[in-house]
């Protein structure tokens, strides 16, 4: 302990002596009388709260619902509301087998008003 500590301790000791001269006399606090019913009342209140919570948490089973109509599944026919999306144009072509060669009754269309250059290309492609 250095001199500064000693000086501080002396100051605190003086304050302590002065404080002790003004300490109020010791007296025990007036105890609150505890009612013998306090505990049972607390338990009853807690039980009531739990009961109310349970009653509120249970779903209302007595609620009236519309009567269920029985349906004979043998008579039932169901169609999807989106069936029309499957009816694409030309779907009959997708369901038939394609044939090799020109179809019967097919006649080529003669082009009209072609330029000389395109005419020469057409004639060159024709087998002689």
């Amino acid at each position: 302990m250095n001199d500064d500590d000693r000086e501080l301790r002396e100051m605190f000791a003086r304050l302590r002596r002065e404080d002790h001269a003004h300490v109020p006399p010791f007296r025990l606090p007036a105890a609150h009388p505890v009612s013998p019913w306090a505990m049972p009342m607390k338990v009853a209140a807690a039980a009531a709260v739990i009961l109310v919570a349970v009653v509120l948490a249970i779903p209302d089973s007595g609620q009236r619902r519309p009567p269920v109509q029985l349906v004979d599944l043998g008579d039932a026919a169901w169609h999807s509301p989106t069936d029309f999306l499957l009816s694409t144009p030309g779907r009959e072509l997708l369901r038939t087998m394609p044939t090799i060669g020109s179809p019967r009754g097919w006649t080529p269309i003669e082009p009209q008003g072609l330029s000389p250059a395109s005419e020469s290309i057409r004639t060159r492609r024709k087998p002689s």
Binding site: H20, V23, P24, F26
Partner: peptide
Amino acid sequence: VEAELERNHADCFAWAM
């Protein structure tokens, strides 16, 4: 406990202050 409270009363009061 009561005896301890009485014995330490002055110090307890100073600490409370």
